[in-house]
Computed example of a mutant assay.
Amino acid sequence: MNPRVLKTRKSIMNAFHDLMTEKKYESITIRDIVQRAGINRSTFYLHFLDKEDLMEQNSNFILEKLREAIQYPTFSLEAAQRDYEERQQPISSLIAFFNHIHEYFKFYSVMLGEKQFPQQLDEVIKEELLKFSLDKVRCAYNAGGLIGLIRYWVSTKMQESPEHMAKWVTQMLLFPYSQMDE
């Protein structure tokens, strides 16, 4: 995609994220979005049909970025345990996962309270976890736990670093019965 087009779309999405932290979705207008993004109305409509299309494309974009974070890089259980035991190194895809949540903090802080997004988030996490395990119950449990942890982290304004969160989850996954570090 053309870099100018990408820059304009990102500007529109950032303006939308900012506005969503200031007011309810229903009260945000196209006028608000274009003023915040510094574009004209016709430019908005070159990229999106309406506010609902912007919301849907925005959610799809964020969820696709989350998929990429979960997928990269893959790991083996043995290597992950060795890395953690020898160097206290968290699973790298968990670092990418929490860095993603951190990068899109404004989006998650609003969207976790919306009707459809938590369900979409749950589905994406479960789909990606099923690539590592065929146990659907375990994947559902882990997805629910991750969403709960994201909610906690976002609600506390991300007081812990992404690395801290990744280390905590790594320890829980690899050594569920060991004493947790504080």
Rank of each mutant, 00 (worst) to 15 (best):
A140Y: 12
C139N: 07
A143Y: 06
D135W: 08
V169Y: 11
Q159V: 01
E103H: 01
W168I: 00
L112K: 03
E163G: 05
Y104T: 03
L149T: 08
K131C: 10
V124C: 12
L129C: 12
L130E: 10
E103V: 03
M165A: 13
Q120D: 01
S133A: 13
V169S: 10
E127V: 02
A140D: 11
F105K: 11
Y141C: 10
K131H: 09
E127G: 03
Y104V: 02
S161K: 06
V169G: 12
M165R: 13
P118F: 08
K115I: 10
C139G: 05
S133R: 12
C139Q: 07
K106V: 01
I150A: 08
G113K: 15
G145C: 08
K115R: 13
E127H: 06
L121T: 04
V154T: 04
T156A: 15
Y152I: 06
F107G: 03
F132Y: 13
L134W: 02
R138A: 13
M165N: 10
T156P: 11
A143N: 07
D122V: 02
V169K: 14
I147A: 06
S155A: 14
K167I: 03
S109W: 01
Q116I: 00
I150H: 09
I101V: 12
F98W: 15
M158Y: 07
L112A: 01
L129T: 09
L112F: 01
W168P: 00
S109F: 03
Q171L: 04
E123R: 08
T156G: 14
K157F: 14
P162Y: 09
G113S: 13
K106A: 14
E127N: 11
L130T: 04
E127I: 00
E160A: 11
V154E: 11
F107N: 03
K136I: 01
S133F: 07
V137W: 00
F117P: 06
Q120P: 00
E163P: 02
L146N: 07
T170F: 08
E163C: 02
L121M: 11
V110M: 11
N142T: 12
F98Y: 15
F132E: 10
E103A: 01
W153Y: 14
E127R: 12
K126S: 06
F97M: 09
K115S: 05
W168H: 04
Y104I: 02
K115D: 06
K131T: 06
F107D: 04
P118M: 05
F105G: 05
G148V: 04
P118I: 03
L134I: 00
Y104M: 04
I147T: 00
L134F: 04
S155N: 12
Q116G: 05
